[in-house]
Amino acid sequence: MSCEEPTTSPTPENNITVVSSDGKEFLLDLKLTEQSETLARLISNFEYDRTDVKKDPVPLGNITSAQMQKIIEWLQHHRYYPKWEQNDIHYSTSFTFETWVEEYLNIPNNEMFELLNAANYLNIPRLFSTICRIMASRITGKSAEQIRTVLNIKTDVKNDVYTGIPIQEDSSSSEDGMSEISLSPSPPPI
């Protein structure tokens, strides 16, 4: 899905200032903050949507300036998207993404996870869900070893010497658990 992106500049009347953990200030259009349930609630509680109320900068201690920049990019792109609802037609469990999203999230895992945490903190469900779907799409169809790599999971199980597929040694599993299965190096033809 794509939307028109009219260019608008925040003005003092319709914006608030947020301050990242490294002290950088960002001027945010109130319209953009509607996508963040955390910011929307804060604005509502302090009545920052009224022009006669003095708007103090909002400190976002958990979010760095780089993350904030990335988030504002997301908010700008989705400015005119309909309000997010988990089960609406815009939500899909499919692993196809619009080009803009693929490019936007073509970032290293550690940045992706930080962005995920930021989206969770600011409660931006569309971003949170999209990152989760991206992560799931990178895992689907992969072996356990590949999943470990994608998700940076430290292994605590033995690998099969031939295939690299792990052999569980979980003592909590039943006595005839997976530990004794070994897979042949070259499967015979069926």
Partner: peptide, 15 residues
């Protein structure tokens, strides 16, 4: 995919 330095946050695992 480049290997990152952190694990997938537990909050996202559900999703």
């Amino acid at each position: 995919m480049e290997k990152g330095g952190t694990e997938l946050p537990i909050v996202a695992l559900n999703e």
